[in-house]
Each structure stands twice: as C-alpha cells, then as structure tokens.
Design a protein around this nucleic acid. Sequence first.
DNA 1: ATGAAGAATGCAACGGAAGTGCATTAATTA
DNA 2: TAATTAATGCACTTCCGTTGCATTCTTCAT
Lengths: 138, 138
Amino acid sequence: MQDLEKILENNNVKPTAMRLLVLQFLLDKKVAISLTDVENYFDKSDRTTLYRTLQTFVKSELAHKIEDGTGIPKYALCEENCHCEIDNDLHLHFRCTNCNETVCITDYKIPTISLPKGYIAEDVNLVVKGICDKCSHN
Amino acid sequence: MQDLEKILENNNVKPTAMRLLVLQFLLDKKVAISLTDVENYFDKSDRTTLYRTLQTFVKSELAHKIEDGTGIPKYALCEENCHCEIDNDLHLHFRCTNCNETVCITDYKIPTISLPKGYIAEDVNLVVKGICDKCSHN
DNA sequence: ATGAAGAATGCAACGGAAGTGCATTAATTA
DNA sequence: TAATTAATGCACTTCCGTTGCATTCTTCAT
C-alpha cells in the first residue's frame, strides 16, 4: 500500500490523498478508464480535480491516454519502464462492442508501419473493435 | 457533374441538392472532413441536415467515418468498391499535428493483427500521428 | 390532377464531456 | 511563523453530437 506512494514519487508526483486513490483505482481496474468512470466511482470528489489528476499522471508518464474511437479519452497505467515511445512501448487497444470496455493488449506490439515519402510518424494508435475474451465465452 | 447524381443513385441515395453539394465538397477536399468543416463551408445550411447527410453517406457505404484521435468524427469518401470490410478495405489514417489535417493513406493497407485467444476482431482503426508530407517540406 | 404517404429539411433544444478562471485550502520552505 | 507554491473545489463556458417535432418537398397511387 505504501508502494503506491513510491510509485508516485518515482515519477515525481506528489502523493496526495486523491492521487493515491485514483492510482489505486487504476491499478484495480484492469481496463482503460474514462474521466467519467473515475468521477462515478469517487462520488464525493470534484470532477476537475480528477481531471487534472489524470492529466498529471499522463504528463509524468505514469498512465497513458487512449483514444479508443468513442471520442471519450480513456486512461490506463503504463507498463514498467514505459516512456510511451514509438517502436518500443506502443501496444494495441481492444474495444469490446459488447461490454464496451477497452483493454490494453500489451503482449502484442504494433508492427512497424510504412508510410509514404515525406510523412514523419510520431505516434501510432491502433484500436481493434470486436468481441473480447470475456464476452465471446458467453 | 451529373456523375455526382449517379454516384448517389448507385448507392441508393436520393440525389437531393444538399447531398450533391456535400458530395462535391467531399470529392474536392482530399482530406477527412468533420461536421463542423462542412457546416462552415455551407454557411446557409442547417447543421442537422448536414449531420444527417453524412450519416446517410456512411450508412450507404459512400463515405467512411474516421476516428482520428481528436474525438471529433471525420468523414471521407470510400474508394471504389469499398465495403469497409476488415482484411480488404481498411487503410490507415494519418493526422498531422501541424496542419491538423487527417488524410487517408489508402496505398498502405493495415497489416493483419494478431490477437490473444478469445478475441474476435470486427474492425481495425489505425491512426498515425505526426508531420504530413506537405508540412515536412516547409 | 389531386390527395395521401413518405422522405428530407429546418428549427430549437438537450445533454455529455472537456476545458478554464479564480478563489480557497493545504503543504513546503525560508 | 510568515510567505511562497502547489493542489483542490466551485462555477461557468464552450463545443459537439444528438434528438424531437413541425414543416416542406417528393413520390406515387387513385
């Protein structure tokens, strides 16, 4: 549990109460989380604080922001030693159209993308939509 | 110019004035277009009509809808004989962080994605962010 | 040709979510 | 302990997508 504090401090984020709670929440939930998800979970807290907490996590490379095609940004904790670098850390995201959850498929890295001349890639975002493991078994 | 009517009719869309104009606009613009883009261009027309026009185009497989990571849906005309099918028609999209334009890179198809057991892919969305051809030359 | 049915359009309003400014509170440090 | 900085909470704005409903236009059968 004090691990949480260390995680934050390792990323130069001051461990406030709210940040610890949000971090815990992200750790528990195995899926990518929207601001609204967090807001609903922490009933008493202010949306703006949560909003900025997530921003802080992303900026300090503790979490990454996911655009899963819904238009609603989702957040998930980075893997160990992740710097969200192209060619190294980019994995794909899977959004289930049944349960509507988005998960990181970290075991499957994104293949190298070839681009026409003149195009410079800085970030790659790959979202697969379909039926997830859980839902395909029911 | 009457070609436009044929395009619509081939896709079972009645060629109304507004639809012809929007189709023309999509043809002219080489980049993916948001609802707001269309709205700004056709100053006199109603947002809802344009909204529904785009929906109609997507439903009739005349255009495809693009989530480019901005959260704002974009639209672009499909290629000839496109049915937006996985494995056949899916191409990648490139969003330039400089000019903020999103283009279809139709020449580069999306490589086959391998997924963990139990996951069923229905749609794949690949967005590369970076500097586009135009902007990298300046 | 005319009236009825259906499709397209236009207007107004709603709702969700991101984002910002500013005052307040908490924490840090000199 | 005072002063500076960071974090939080509240109110408000803005932006878009979306929907409901009334109105106009089109089509088609009588």
